[in-house]
């Protein structure tokens, strides 16, 4: 027998061209065991109000596009299911700490600038030619950065981070995790280019280790651990620069 229950979804709406401030609109949506929160929003857009605006792409927790606040908690809406909120209702809002473009779509510009600033790519002093083959790593060298490479830039950690909410000059969990991912990679030689950012107040020192970022991460990245390793690196760099000409940074 088909399972067709209905649940109330309250959605925050905001059109900056016509609305003076955001407001809540309620919809009643049918669902079954397999209906994700994202599918609930798609039902609203297809059947109830075609003007509802939200981002999504892959539907399977890979692309990082569909992050929303669900009952006040940052979630990937494709990875959260309506059944888990029944018989209660849902309140879906745009990701916290970001400006709203329209309805549930937020402006990611601030994060994208931060992401670029951490230089999230492998930096080599001399690129060796392809004829010399690939860069080899031991399993241990891979494991030192692997979990941090799982970040999908979904911004849930930025919505979770109270420090970013208080002062968005803080570089934030995902960008600092990716910074650490490249600093910890044995193939990378760009640590000295990234350390000034790590060492600054806007870098790892803006964090007070609340740890909510790691709790909400849908890919088990543990940004709090990456930031804390950054604090250890920055502390070494701070004191060792008096002992070695190039500080604690590899030359």
């Amino acid at each position: 027998m088909p399972d067709r229950r209905e649940i109330d979804i309250e959605v925050m709406r905001y059109n900056p061209e016509t609305d003076s401030e955001p407001y809540i609109q309620s919809f009643r949506v049918p669902f079954d065991e397999d209906t994700s929160v994202l599918m609930g929003l798609q039902y609203i857009k297809d059947h109830l109000d075609g003007s509802l605006t939200f981002r999504w792409s892959c539907r399977m927790a890979v692309c990082g596009s569909c992050g929303k606040m669900v009952n006040g908690v940052p979630k990937l809406s494709c990875k959260a299911f309506l059944r888990d909120y029944y018989p209660g209702k849902l309140r879906i809002e745009p990701l916290e700490h970001f400006p709203i473009v329209r309805d549930l779509a937020v402006d990611q510009t601030d994060f994208l600038e931060k992401l670029e600033a951490v230089k999230p790519w492998i930096i080599r002093k001399d690129e060796k030619p392809l004829s010399e083959g690939t860069y080899l790593q031991t399993p241990e060298e891979v494991s030192s950065y692997l979990q941090f490479s799982s970040c999908i830039n979904c911004l849930l950690c930025y919505s979770a981070c109270p420090q970013y909410g208080l002062d968005n000059s803080f570089t934030g969990p995902a960008a600092l995790s990716l910074l650490h991912r490249y600093n910890a990679d044995s193939r990378d030689e760009g640590k000295s280019e990234r350390m000034p950012l790590v060492n600054s107040e806007e870098g790892v020192w803006g964090c007070t280790l609340v740890g909510y970022c790691s709790e909400v991460c849908p890919k088990q990245v543990d940004p709090a651990a990456a930031v804390n390793r950054g604090k250890v690196n920055s502390t070494m760099d701070y004191f060792l620069r008096f002992l070695t000409p190039r500080g604690g940074v590899d030359s």
Binding site: A117, P196, L197, N199, S200, E201, E202, G203, W205, K231, S234, T235, D237, Y238, F239
Partner: peptide, 15 residues
Amino acid sequence: MKPMKRSNEPIFWSL
């Protein structure tokens, strides 16, 4: 990006 100022937080964080 503006140049970053080094934080003196490592002293207090170590303690």
